[in-house]
């Protein structure tokens, strides 16, 4: 069941992205920025957590999920540390993903060449 929900929720988020790309002049880069910011805001409004509860990876793997990860870290750190948590929290939960992207990206680049 959780696989089906992940499929449906993840698929729907991607389909919205496709509609934005095909119906508006937004480029893929614009859509990615828009999605990450929307995820961060929806998370702050308390809307994203319920989507994650239903969709699981279907809500965390698409980029709005990354925005949610950023915001959830901030709120968690504010609760623990107060004001400076606004700063220390941004990468609290997202650091694994960001560091993995940099390091894995670099190693893959060292190994492969572009096919063209």
């Amino acid at each position: 069941m959780d696989y089906l929900l992940a499929f449906l929720v993840g698929g729907t988020i991607c389909a919205i992205g496709q509609l934005l790309m095909d119906l508006t002049p937004l480029t893929p880069a614009h859509v990615l920025v828009l999605f990450v910011c929307s995820g961060a805001i929806l998370s702050g409004l308390g809307v994203y957590e319920p989507i994650v509860a239903i969709g699981g990876a279907g809500a965390t793997i698409p980029l709005p999920g990354f925005g949610h990860t950023l915001t959830s870290g901030v709120i968690q750190e504010i609760e623990a540390k107060g004001f400076w948590g606004i700063f220390s929290g941004v990468l609290e939960n997202a650091s694994v993903g960001v560091v993995a992207a940099v390091v894995v990206g670099l190693f893959i680049t060292l190994i492969f060449n572009p096919k063209g």
Partner: peptide, 20 residues
């Protein structure tokens, strides 16, 4: 395009769920 995005996006998230 929307169907393809839905199917492939859904599939990638399903793989994510397996890993999760």
């Amino acid at each position: 395009n929307t169907i393809a995005a839905f199917l492939v996006g859904g599939l990638i998230c399903t793989i994510g769920q397996i890993i999760l």
